[in-house]
Design a protein around this nucleic acid. Structure first.
Lengths: 121, 121
DNA sequence: TCCTTGGTTCGACGGTTGTCGATGTCTTGA
DNA sequence: TCAAGACATCGACAACCGTCGAACCAAGGA
């Protein structure tokens, strides 16, 4: 972390969020926006999390139950831990349906990250 | 990807490495690709680094000398440390011109990250 | 009611990371 | 040759992160 103090996680309202951040080429980020966006990139900064995310995103309907994606080489509690981080960062949402819990991608948030890295000139 | 046999990268030769990866929706990442891509996201996972990166990217010509972007609230050694990380991750390149060192964005690498987060298709 | 299966939370441990001051390197100008 | 400015590297420290096993919770099914 850049600061030695604990930073509260955004815990975005997944739906309401969105608007932050034009392409980086458009101007420098405010410290606040940098804080928010870096938290999202951080969610994808771990190889296990990135694989979990890609498994959900590439699954039919952009949604998958934990049991479908748990095969990533770490223990089940660790999988759960990583999914929680992705959820807290606003990249995934979860919903329980009967016995299983389904995770799916939050398109608007992911799109914001992609747009921010758009270097178009 | 894993199809177009890329040469083993020792520690990122910044320029040559054009990272992989179709949109995440297209299929799950291999462990190797996840490792490579997560390293890039990790580079942007710190608010100070993200601000430094945005300062370089939004600067005229997508390039700036350290003295132009050092005002981010941390010490000079820390700025240098972060710039090195961005460089090691392949997101920036550097070049010394006289007294000053200039950093500029590596467009292909950044574009790869953006493309990977593209949810369309 | 008990048991089983699917997931989350908890507590602990070791490795990693961001930060700083001090110091080193490189370049220019006197 | 020397001094000063611009960056990089070093060494150390505290906070943070990923990981695991154990314990816990929730939802069927007998």
């Amino acid at each position: 972390m850049s600061k030695s103090k604990v930073v509260e996680l955004p815990v975005l309202d997944t739906e309401a969020v969105v608007p932050c951040c034009p392409p980086i080429t458009a101007g420098e980020l405010s410290p606040e926006d940098a804080e928010r966006m870096s938290a999202m990139f951080k969610a994808l900064s771990d190889p296990v999390r990135l694989r979990l995310f890609s498994k959900v995103a590439s699954h039919a309907g952009g949604e998958a139950c934990v049991c479908d994606i748990s095969d990533v080489g770490v223990s089940q509690p660790t999988v759960s831990h990583h999914l929680k981080k992705l959820k807290d960062a606003g990249l995934l949402t979860s919903e329980r349906r009967g016995t299983w819990v389904y995770y799916k991608v939050a398109p608007s948030v992911v799109a914001a990250m992609s747009a921010m890295l758009d270097l178009r000139v």
